[in-house]
Protein backbone atom coordinates (compact mmCIF):
# COMPACT_ATOMS: atom_id res chain seq x y z
CA UNK A 1 0.00 0.00 0.00
CA UNK A 2 1.35 3.38 -0.95
CA UNK A 3 1.46 6.22 1.52
CA UNK A 4 0.99 9.79 0.44
CA UNK A 5 4.03 11.87 1.28
CA UNK A 6 2.65 15.20 2.34
CA UNK A 7 5.87 16.72 3.61
CA UNK A 8 4.77 16.59 7.26
CA UNK A 9 7.12 14.52 9.33
CA UNK A 10 5.71 11.11 10.17
CA UNK A 11 6.29 9.64 13.62
CA UNK A 12 4.42 6.36 13.39
CA UNK A 13 3.82 4.30 10.27
CA UNK A 14 1.75 1.15 10.50
CA UNK A 15 2.01 -0.99 7.41
CA UNK A 16 -0.60 -3.73 7.02
CA UNK A 17 -0.30 -4.80 10.63
CA UNK A 18 -1.72 -8.13 11.74
CA UNK A 19 -1.51 -9.09 15.38
CA UNK A 20 -2.20 -12.58 16.57
CA UNK A 21 -1.63 -13.67 20.12
CA UNK A 22 -2.26 -16.76 22.14
CA UNK A 23 -4.51 -16.62 25.14
CA UNK A 24 -5.33 -19.17 27.75
CA UNK A 25 -9.08 -19.09 27.32
CA UNK A 26 -11.00 -20.39 30.29
CA UNK A 27 -10.50 -23.83 31.71
CA UNK A 28 -10.59 -26.84 29.45
CA UNK A 29 -11.68 -29.80 31.52
CA UNK A 30 -11.75 -29.74 35.29
CA UNK A 31 -8.25 -28.38 35.67
CA UNK A 32 -7.24 -31.13 38.08
CA UNK A 33 -3.95 -32.97 38.13
CA UNK A 34 -5.65 -36.06 36.70
CA UNK A 35 -6.94 -34.26 33.61
CA UNK A 36 -3.56 -32.63 33.09
CA UNK A 37 -1.92 -36.05 33.25
CA UNK A 38 -4.39 -37.60 30.81
CA UNK A 39 -3.76 -34.70 28.45
CA UNK A 40 -0.03 -35.31 28.50
CA UNK A 41 -0.49 -39.06 27.96
CA UNK A 42 -2.69 -38.43 24.93
CA UNK A 43 -0.15 -35.89 23.70
CA UNK A 44 -2.72 -33.16 23.38
CA UNK A 45 -1.78 -29.55 23.37
CA UNK A 46 -2.94 -27.45 26.28
CA UNK A 47 -6.65 -27.45 25.61
CA UNK A 48 -7.46 -23.92 26.47
CA UNK A 49 -4.95 -22.12 24.27
CA UNK A 50 -6.64 -20.17 21.56
CA UNK A 51 -5.33 -17.82 18.94
CA UNK A 52 -6.86 -14.39 18.75
CA UNK A 53 -6.53 -12.39 15.57
CA UNK A 54 -6.92 -9.04 17.28
CA UNK A 55 -5.77 -6.60 14.60
CA UNK A 56 -6.29 -7.28 10.92
CA UNK A 57 -4.39 -5.46 8.21
CA UNK A 58 -4.31 -2.01 9.77
CA UNK A 59 -2.32 0.74 8.06
CA UNK A 60 -2.00 4.38 8.98
CA UNK A 61 0.56 7.14 9.28
CA UNK A 62 0.74 9.54 12.21
CA UNK A 63 2.55 12.88 12.00
CA UNK A 64 4.20 15.21 14.45
CA UNK A 65 1.66 17.16 16.42
CA UNK A 66 -1.11 14.65 15.82
CA UNK A 67 -3.37 13.59 18.65
CA UNK A 68 -5.19 10.52 17.47
CA UNK A 69 -8.18 9.10 19.25
CA UNK A 70 -8.62 5.37 18.81
CA UNK A 71 -12.25 4.44 19.16
CA UNK A 72 -14.27 1.28 18.78
CA UNK A 73 -16.26 -1.17 20.82
CA UNK A 74 -14.85 -3.38 23.57
CA UNK A 75 -12.57 -6.02 22.14
CA UNK A 76 -12.07 -4.29 18.82
CA UNK A 77 -8.27 -4.37 19.16
CA UNK A 78 -7.63 -0.81 20.35
CA UNK A 79 -5.38 -1.67 23.28
CA UNK A 80 -3.65 -4.40 21.30
CA UNK A 81 -2.83 -1.91 18.55
CA UNK A 82 -1.37 0.49 21.10
CA UNK A 83 0.75 -2.25 22.60
CA UNK A 84 2.10 -3.05 19.18
CA UNK A 85 2.94 0.61 18.52
CA UNK A 86 4.73 0.64 21.87
CA UNK A 87 6.78 -2.32 20.70
CA UNK A 88 5.53 -4.65 23.41
CA UNK A 89 3.62 -6.98 21.12
CA UNK A 90 5.39 -7.72 17.85
CA UNK A 91 3.02 -7.96 14.88
CA UNK A 92 2.57 -11.38 13.25
CA UNK A 93 2.93 -9.74 9.85
CA UNK A 94 3.36 -6.23 8.57
CA UNK A 95 5.42 -3.69 10.43
CA UNK A 96 5.17 -0.66 12.66
CA UNK A 97 7.82 2.02 12.32
CA UNK A 98 8.26 4.62 15.00
CA UNK A 99 10.55 7.55 15.59
CA UNK A 100 11.93 7.29 19.10
CA UNK A 101 10.55 5.13 21.84
CA UNK A 102 6.80 5.30 22.33
CA UNK A 103 5.60 5.21 25.92
CA UNK A 104 2.46 3.33 26.77
CA UNK A 105 0.33 4.47 29.62
CA UNK A 106 -2.42 2.12 30.60
CA UNK A 107 -4.87 1.83 33.40
CA UNK A 108 -4.16 -1.82 34.04
CA UNK A 109 -0.47 -1.22 34.32
CA UNK A 110 0.47 -1.16 37.94
CA UNK A 111 3.82 -0.13 39.23
CA UNK A 112 5.08 -1.49 42.53
CA UNK A 113 2.07 -1.75 44.76
CA UNK A 114 3.92 -2.51 48.00
CA UNK A 115 5.84 0.71 47.75
CA UNK A 116 4.75 4.21 48.55
CA UNK A 117 3.71 6.57 45.81
CA UNK A 118 6.80 8.60 46.50
CA UNK A 119 9.16 5.67 45.85
CA UNK A 120 7.20 4.79 42.74
CA UNK A 121 7.80 8.27 41.39
CA UNK A 122 11.55 7.90 41.84
CA UNK A 123 11.66 4.36 40.45
CA UNK A 124 9.47 5.21 37.47
CA UNK A 125 11.61 8.20 36.59
CA UNK A 126 14.83 6.21 36.94
CA UNK A 127 13.39 3.49 34.72
CA UNK A 128 12.63 6.08 32.08
CA UNK A 129 16.27 7.06 32.19
CA UNK A 130 16.12 10.31 34.15
CA UNK A 131 19.07 11.22 36.34
CA UNK A 132 18.66 11.61 40.12
CA UNK A 133 19.28 15.36 39.83
CA UNK A 134 16.61 15.64 37.17
CA UNK A 135 14.17 13.70 39.33
CA UNK A 136 14.79 15.91 42.32
CA UNK A 137 14.07 18.87 40.14
CA UNK A 138 10.85 17.46 38.69
CA UNK A 139 9.60 15.64 41.79
CA UNK A 140 7.36 18.37 43.20
CA UNK A 141 5.90 19.05 39.81
CA UNK A 142 5.00 15.37 39.34
CA UNK A 143 3.40 15.02 42.74
CA UNK A 144 1.52 18.25 42.32
CA UNK A 145 0.27 17.28 38.90
CA UNK A 146 -0.93 13.92 40.16
CA UNK A 147 -2.95 15.66 42.85
CA UNK A 148 -2.26 12.77 45.24
CA UNK A 149 -1.32 15.13 48.07
CA UNK A 150 -0.49 13.58 51.42
CA UNK A 151 -1.26 10.07 50.15
CA UNK A 152 2.09 10.14 48.40
CA UNK A 153 3.62 8.62 51.57
CA UNK A 154 1.26 5.64 51.53
CA UNK A 155 1.78 2.39 49.62
CA UNK A 156 0.19 2.34 46.19
CA UNK A 157 -1.89 -0.68 47.19
CA UNK A 158 -3.98 1.69 49.30
CA UNK A 159 -4.75 3.97 46.35
CA UNK A 160 -8.05 3.97 44.53
CA UNK A 161 -7.84 3.06 40.87
CA UNK A 162 -8.32 6.71 39.97
CA UNK A 163 -5.47 7.83 42.18
CA UNK A 164 -3.14 5.17 40.82
CA UNK A 165 -3.99 6.15 37.26
CA UNK A 166 -3.33 9.80 38.06
CA UNK A 167 0.05 9.07 39.56
CA UNK A 168 1.06 6.90 36.63
CA UNK A 169 0.00 9.53 34.16
CA UNK A 170 1.94 12.15 36.09
CA UNK A 171 5.07 10.01 36.11
CA UNK A 172 4.89 9.06 32.45
CA UNK A 173 4.22 12.60 31.32
CA UNK A 174 7.13 14.00 33.36
CA UNK A 175 9.44 13.14 30.53
CA UNK A 176 9.01 14.65 27.13
CA UNK A 177 7.89 11.79 24.94
CA UNK A 178 8.00 11.83 21.20
CA UNK A 179 5.11 9.42 21.15
CA UNK A 180 2.75 8.97 24.06
CA UNK A 181 0.14 6.23 24.06
CA UNK A 182 -2.66 6.69 26.55
CA UNK A 183 -4.94 3.75 27.17
CA UNK A 184 -8.07 4.70 29.09
CA UNK A 185 -5.87 6.24 31.74
CA UNK A 186 -7.94 9.36 31.98
CA UNK A 187 -11.26 7.61 32.33
CA UNK A 188 -10.83 6.82 36.00
CA UNK A 189 -9.71 10.26 37.10
CA UNK A 190 -12.17 12.82 38.39
CA UNK A 191 -13.35 15.79 36.36
CA UNK A 192 -10.66 18.12 37.66
CA UNK A 193 -7.87 15.71 36.80
CA UNK A 194 -9.33 15.10 33.39
CA UNK A 195 -9.11 18.76 32.55
CA UNK A 196 -5.52 18.89 33.76
CA UNK A 197 -4.49 15.84 31.79
CA UNK A 198 -6.19 17.10 28.66
CA UNK A 199 -4.13 20.24 29.04
CA UNK A 200 -1.03 18.10 29.40
CA UNK A 201 -1.87 16.25 26.19
CA UNK A 202 -2.22 19.57 24.39
CA UNK A 203 1.18 20.57 25.74
CA UNK A 204 2.74 17.33 24.52
CA UNK A 205 1.28 17.95 21.08
CA UNK A 206 2.76 21.41 21.02
CA UNK A 207 6.16 19.97 21.84
CA UNK A 208 5.78 18.34 18.44
CA UNK A 209 5.00 14.97 19.94
CA UNK A 210 2.34 12.53 18.85
CA UNK A 211 -0.36 11.32 21.19
CA UNK A 212 -2.57 8.28 20.79
CA UNK A 213 -5.59 8.10 23.04
CA UNK A 214 -7.80 5.07 23.52
CA UNK A 215 -11.01 6.07 25.17
CA UNK A 216 -14.64 5.10 25.36
CA UNK A 217 -15.52 8.64 26.23
CA UNK A 218 -16.14 10.30 22.88
CA UNK A 219 -16.22 13.70 24.56
CA UNK A 220 -12.64 13.28 25.71
CA UNK A 221 -11.64 12.20 22.22
CA UNK A 222 -13.41 15.19 20.67
CA UNK A 223 -11.80 17.57 23.14
CA UNK A 224 -8.24 16.35 22.90
CA UNK A 225 -7.75 14.87 19.46
CA UNK A 226 -7.57 16.28 15.98
CA UNK A 227 -7.85 12.93 14.30
CA UNK A 228 -9.50 9.61 15.02
CA UNK A 229 -9.13 5.99 14.03
CA UNK A 230 -12.14 3.71 14.28
CA UNK A 231 -11.44 0.04 14.76
CA UNK A 232 -14.16 -2.53 14.33
CA UNK A 233 -13.35 -6.16 15.18
CA UNK A 234 -9.71 -5.55 14.41
CA UNK A 235 -10.32 -3.88 11.04
CA UNK A 236 -9.76 -0.20 10.42
CA UNK A 237 -13.16 1.23 9.53
CA UNK A 238 -12.36 4.89 9.25
CA UNK A 239 -9.41 7.23 9.65
CA UNK A 240 -9.86 10.98 9.43
CA UNK A 241 -10.67 14.25 11.20
CA UNK A 242 -12.04 13.57 14.66
CA UNK A 243 -15.53 15.07 14.13
CA UNK A 244 -16.18 13.00 11.03
CA UNK A 245 -15.06 9.72 12.53
CA UNK A 246 -16.89 10.21 15.81
CA UNK A 247 -20.03 11.16 13.89
CA UNK A 248 -19.86 8.03 11.76
CA UNK A 249 -19.12 5.90 14.78
CA UNK A 250 -22.07 7.37 16.64
CA UNK A 251 -24.39 6.64 13.76
CA UNK A 252 -23.32 3.04 13.53
CA UNK A 253 -23.47 2.64 17.31
CA UNK A 254 -27.03 3.95 17.58
CA UNK A 255 -27.92 1.58 14.82
CA UNK A 256 -26.69 -1.40 16.81
CA UNK A 257 -26.37 -0.88 20.55
CA UNK A 258 -26.72 2.52 22.13
CA UNK A 259 -23.47 3.78 23.52
CA UNK A 260 -22.88 6.94 25.47
Amino acid sequence: MAVADTGAEPTVIADDVNIIYKVIAGQGGKGTAATAFRRILKRQDRPSIREVHAVKGVSFTAYKGDAIGVIGRNGSGKSTLLRAVAGLLPPASGAIYTGGRPSLLGVNAAMMNDLTGDRNVVLGCLAMGMSPAEIEQRYDEIVEFSGIGEFIDLPMSTYSSGMAARLKFAIASAKAHDILLVDEALATGDAEFRIRSEKKIHELREQAGTVFLVSHSLDVVLDTCNRAIWLDKGVLRLDGPVEEVVEAYNQSATGATTKV
Binding site: G87, G106, M111, A172
Partner: peptide, 9 residues
Protein backbone atom coordinates in the same frame (compact mmCIF):
# COMPACT_ATOMS: atom_id res chain seq x y z
CA UNK B 1 5.00 -7.70 33.88
CA UNK B 2 2.90 -4.64 34.56
CA UNK B 3 5.98 -2.50 35.02
CA UNK B 4 7.41 -3.93 31.82
CA UNK B 5 4.22 -3.09 29.97
CA UNK B 6 4.15 0.44 31.33
CA UNK B 7 7.63 1.78 30.80
CA UNK B 8 10.48 1.23 28.42
CA UNK B 9 13.71 0.24 30.06
Amino acid sequence: LSLIRTLHF
